[in-house]
């Protein structure tokens, strides 16, 4: 393994890293908003809305991310709408991860005791006021650890955008390998970069879990 060669190409890796970070950040925002919307619809028991949310969750939890991504990218082109690669990756990953995040948030919402709804109802709060002012704030603390866990999975999954040609970290690494060889050194470096991003997050999760354990 010759890391000197890798070092010479490091700026290129950093470019990929930046794209991976941007894709991760945008997808975290997108999937969280989608997940929150789907979870809200699902617990709302609004007839059609909650059905749509349920189908959404089932469909995307039951299909590979790779297929979702290819479907978004080539499907949109087929429909005559040419998406840029980065946007397609954000949409594909957000839609896919949003299904998991919806379930995490829904579990959090449902873990708030019914007594909280009852107390609010008697005080005169509407269901939506109760949801926003009483239930969601309590949900935050409960869902944060599994949510961050899901974000870690999301960050690692961004590497799949490789297949639609996005110049993210892995694809840049591949380009370096194609040019100068040294696959092992490049892969180790890439793995180390992912680790540097994800490890603090998983430490954070562990800290949160330890703190929320009943004394």
């Amino acid at each position: 393994m010759n890391f000197i060669v890798v070092l010479a190409s490091f700026p290129q890796l950093l470019e990929g890293l930046l794209i991976t970070l941007a894709l991760s950040a945008a997808s975290i925002v997108g999937s969280t908003l989608l997940g929150l919307l789907a979870a809200t619809l699902r617990v709302s028991r609004v007839p059609i809305g909650s059905q749509i949310a349920r189908i959404y969750v089932e469909v995307f939890r039951g299909s590979p991310l790779l297929i979702t991504l290819l479907f978004v990218y080539f499907g949109s082109a087929y429909a005559g709408y040419h998406m840029n690669i980065f946007a397609a990756a954000v949409v594909g990953i957000s839609v896919y991860q949003g299904a998991y995040i919806a379930e995490i948030i829904r579990a959090g919402i449902e873990s708030v005791p019914p007594g909280q709804w009852e107390a609010s109802k008697i005080l005169g709060l509407s269901n939506s006021q109760t949801f926003v002012s009483v239930v969601l704030p309590q949900t935050g603390k409960i869902v944060l650890p599994p949510l961050i866990g899901q974000y870690i999975a999301l960050i690692k999954d961004t590497s799949i955008a490789f297949v639609i040609g996005l110049a993210e970290l892995v694809r840049q690494g591949q380009a370096i390998i194609d040019r100068v060889g040294q696959p092992l050194a490049v892969y180790v470096t890439i793995a180390a970069l992912y680790f540097i991003i994800c490890y603090p997050l998983s430490r954070w999760v562990r800290g949160l879990e330890k703190r929320s354990q009943p004394a």
């Binding site: 005791p113 009852e118 107390a119 008697i122 005169g124 009483v134």
Partner: peptide, 15 residues
Amino acid sequence: RGHVGMVFQQFNLFP
């Protein structure tokens, strides 16, 4: 709603 008050065994305060 809002015209009667209820006090529960488990308090049901907003934590």
